Simulated scan of single mutants.
Amino acid sequence: MDDLVVQLKALAEPTRLRIASLLARGELTVSELVQVLGQSQPRVSRHLKLLTDAHLVERLPEGAYVFYRLVAGGPGHRLAGVIGELAPPDDPVLKRDLDRLDAVKAARAAAAEAYFKRAAEDWDRIRALHLSEDEVEAAMRDAAGSGPFDLMIDVGVGTGRILEVFADRVGEGIGVDVNHAMLNVARLNLERAGLTEASVRKADVSALPFDDHVADLVTVHQVLHYLDDPAIAIAECARVLKPGGVLLIADFAPHQLEFLKTEHAHRRLGFSDEEITDWVESAGLELRRRASLHPEKPETHLTVKIWAARRVSPRISRSPVRIKASSV
């Protein structure tokens, strides 16, 4: 009862009601809220602190940026969400807020699309080297199983596509990446897809910001070949899996396309079944399924491999793993 009183008091102020209404429509930074509300940054930050202390709003650091959103679950989420829905749309102050919010989101979308356009040429060239994404995604869904999965973590979220692929089987999806510009691309795509239960945050695969044994599904799609030490990434993904949870990896089989190293920053030219099996078993998982998607021209194109492993016990690792810095 005391917590509810604190939350009601936190919302019983016009600016904080406006903030709750805005955050009910998606994540925003302090600077974006300043633009919408027309108030100083210190004042907006003070209101956000009160809402955060009342467990109505949560703070998500992202490098030099900090995003705020309504808490992901519990009474605070329901209360703040209801307040956002009850806000009268014909109120002139709220209407002005929403008009400004549209302008802020349009500017964010323009920046995200500009970044995506710069990167898309490289991605298109790599995609042309293997089977269609539709075939890869269908194989990933098949390997993961039907779920349902309460919590999915997508490591190296990229455009957010894998969160979309599994949205019908997932209660909550969280994508992580180290690239702020890429996270904004994913935010834009998830918002356009109407996936309100999916979100993204900045994080390194070597230090995921989650407790042990919380995720039902962890996906790692075309990420391992960028890493200095893929074993570390797999061990960290295994750490956050629940007993019975699934780790799903999609990457390339061993190949000889050296230009991917020199021109596209690939650290590894694919992975064998043996090394993936060794890494997942060292992380306390059991490899359950693997699939190979072969191209029509194996001499010049890439075979995509899919591996699905399951945590069969709460154990983290059967042997120590050397830890060093790596990034998504």
Rank of each mutant, 00 (worst) to 15 (best):
2 D>T: 11
3 D>R: 14
13 E>V: 12
15 T>N: 09
17 L>Y: 08
18 R>N: 00
19 I>C: 02
24 A>K: 08
26 G>V: 02
28 L>C: 02
43 R>D: 10
47 H>G: 04
56 L>A: 08
60 L>F: 01
60 L>T: 15
69 R>W: 04
72 A>C: 01
74 G>S: 10
74 G>Q: 11
85 E>T: 13
87 A>N: 03
91 D>L: 00
92 P>A: 14
95 K>R: 15
116 F>P: 00
119 A>L: 05
120 A>L: 10
123 W>T: 01
124 D>W: 11
126 I>E: 13
127 R>L: 11
130 H>A: 13
131 L>H: 05
133 E>N: 01
136 V>Y: 00
137 E>D: 13
139 A>K: 12
140 M>A: 12
141 R>A: 01
149 F>A: 01
150 D>H: 07
154 D>V: 04
161 R>A: 09
164 E>P: 05
166 F>H: 11
168 D>K: 09
170 V>M: 07
178 V>F: 08
182 M>N: 06
186 A>L: 03
193 A>C: 05
207 A>I: 04
215 A>V: 01
215 A>M: 05
218 V>G: 05
230 P>D: 12
237 C>K: 03
239 R>T: 07
241 L>R: 04
248 L>H: 08
252 F>M: 12
259 F>N: 12
261 K>D: 02
261 K>W: 02
265 A>I: 05
266 H>E: 15
279 W>M: 15
284 G>V: 06
284 G>E: 08
285 L>T: 11
292 S>A: 15
298 P>S: 05
298 P>R: 03
305 K>C: 13
305 K>V: 12
310 R>K: 14
321 V>C: 13
325 A>I: 04
328 V>Q: 06
